[in-house]
Design a binder for these strands. Structure first.
Length: 492
RNA sequence: GGUUCCUUCGUCUAAUGGUUAGGACAGGAGAUUCUCAGUCUCUAAAUAGGGGUUCGAUUCCCCUAGGAACUACCA
């Protein structure tokens, strides 16, 4: 049987790291086993639903380059793939279970349930959950309640005896006593929408899903789902519960640990290949030594057997490392165009860059490339090119081991050597040699000559290399800044 | 509280019934470079604890401890 897997997110928030890790595992498993990857939108919670979330889902998968074989937009033979458009299906199946005596209508109000819960907590009752108050209503009682206009929910009858087991490819057999399964969960809400459990089981069956790969947080509801499959008389798919992605403190990764939405990473200038590579490596590994795995490679070599049991912590620093590596590997033209929006947003270049501006950005790539962890770093790195804010603390010009006198000389004589050399078209290395000679003459370290000049030209103690900076700035502007610094230091 | 699951360096992980328990990130040290970054070299760092089974266990079993998830008309 051909593999069919799905990613079935709920559009109630932005796509986050944990979610796309699940998507990626499903996607890679489908590709590597020649199966189909299906996208299904589980939008049965109309309270938390948002259009923005749905758009974010599409744009995030698109950005990552994850294409689905069946699902919204592309369609497929088992559609619709959006649960809110399958409304009638769930109702039909839920009512079928009622008819067969496997489920029942419940008219309990949220208030009663709330009170029940409080009571159970207060008395530290051993019995937790719904008390099956409506499990054995007579037809007359039902009619009475219907007459009052109470909209019922449909609850599944969970056996009180016996136990239910399901097999998980990663975890092995997982067994739960039926009496420990949340008593009589709601299948169909009073608004007629299905709950997750119902919709998920029905759709997975109807869509021919063969492997259910989802986060381990779903393990506790595994037996319940099996009960549902059995109630319908359907074959249970293969389960594969994925280890969770945790934060530094070992708790489920969430906003308080830092960025979790993929969109945020994208906005900061992470590359999709870095995200894919790193995220895939938490909870899965090829051989323990291969670090760099492209999406294309993963589509071939992903094996379910290599998925781990234990949860993994998300390490932002390792992601940074991956990202800086991928930035360096990336094509210069691509990096240039990725940098553009940040420079525009910073107001450094116009929103429709001129040819001259584009050229400038293009030249910026080479020196900046190996200094960026994320593309947005370019804003700080290139500020001196677009904004001229001279350093006004004389101390900043003075290198360690130097003093104001020597700094003045370095600026004056070093500046002469530098610009004379550049104007004559001397090689950078040659000029550098001459500047080094000056430093030994002044009895200071090489940096004693370079630092004041660099600070003068780049307006910062931390900058791109001097020659790159001058070349980017242009000779005239560089010279102007140096002259200004000379004047400034002279007065001190 | 109840239920279920998990446990190799700080982190992600590799390996095997017999190894000096390997790699990477982060950390530390050094080298290099005009600063920063980078690069290179070196370094420290782990089988949670206790019982078994076994000639031998980190690996198999049990217990303990710790952690996590779930416990909604949310998914």
């Amino acid at each position: 049987m051909d593999v069919r897997v799905r990613y079935a997110p709920s559009p109630t928030g932005l796509q986050h790291i944990g979610g796309i890790r699940t998507a990626l595992f499903n996607y890679f498993f489908a590709r590597s086993s020649g199966g189909k990857f299906i996208l299904r939108v589980e939008d049965t919670d109309r309270e938390r639903y948002s259009d923005e979330s749905l758009e974010d889902l599409y744009s995030t998968l698109d950005w990552l380059g994850i294409k689905w074989d069946e699902g919204p937009v592309v369609g497929g033979p088992y559609g619709p793939y959006i649960q809110s458009e399958r409304f009638d299906i769930y109702k039909k199946y839920a009512e079928q279970l009622v008819k067969e005596g496997k489920a029942y209508y419940c008219y309990c109000t949220p208030e009663r349930l709330e009170a029940l819960r409080e009571e159970q907590v207060r008395t530290k009752s051993e019995y937790q959950g719904y008390d099956r108050h409506c499990a054995n209503l007579t037809e007359e009682e039902r009619a009475e309640l219907e007459k009052k206009g109470i909209k019922p929910v449909i609850r599944l009858k969970v056996p009180t005896e016996g136990k239910t087991t399901f097999h998980d490819v990663i975890m092995g057999d997982i067994t739960r006593k039926n009496k420990d399964i949340s008593p009589d969960p709601i299948l169909l809400k009073s608004d007629g929408f299905p709950t997750y459990h119902l919709a998920n089981v029905i759709d997975d069956h109807l869509m021919g899903i063969t492997h259910i790969m989802r986060a381990q947080e779903w393990i506790p509801s595994g037996p319940l789902h099996v009960l549902l499959y059995q109630a319908f008389g359907w074959e249970v798919p293969t389960y594969c519960h994925l280890p969770m992605v945790m934060g530094k403190d070992g708790q489920k990764l969430s906003k308080r640990h830092g960025s979790t939405a993929v969109r945020e990473f994208r906005e900061k200038g992470y590359l999709p290949e870095a995200i894919i590579n790193y995220v895939t490596l938490v909870g899965w590994s090829l051989d323990g030594s291969t670090e760099f795995l492209s999406k294309e490679q993963l589509e071939k070599c992903f094996r379910m057997e290599n998925i781990h049991k234990n949860p993994g912590k998300f390490d932002y620093k390792k992601l940074d490392w991956f990202n800086s590596q991928y930035i360096r590997m990336a094509d210069d033209g691509r990096i240039a165009s990725l940098m553009m929006p940040y420079l525009i947003k910073a107001g450094y270049i116009s929103s429709t860059p001129t040819a001259e501006e584009e050229e400038k950005v293009r030249k910026l790539v080479k020196p900046a490339k190996e200094r960026m962890k994320v593309i947005s770093d370019i804003v700080d790195l290139s500020k001196f090119l677009f904004v001229d804010e001279p350093v006004e603390d004389p101390e900043m010009y003075i290198a360690k081991g130097s003093d104001i006198e020597k700094t003045r000389k370095a600026l004056e004589r070093g500046g002469d050597i530098l610009f004379k050399g550049l104007e004559e078209g001397k090689a950078d290395e040659k000029i550098e040699e001459e500047l080094c000679a000056l430093s030994s003459e002044l009895e200071i370290k090489v940096n004693g000559v370079f630092q004041p000049i660099r600070v003068a030209i780049t307006n910062s103690q931390v900058s791109l290399p001097l020659f790159d900076s001058i070349s980017l700035l242009g000779l005239d502007e560089a010279k102007r800044r140096l002259e200004r610094a000379k004047e400034f230091i002279k007065e001190k």
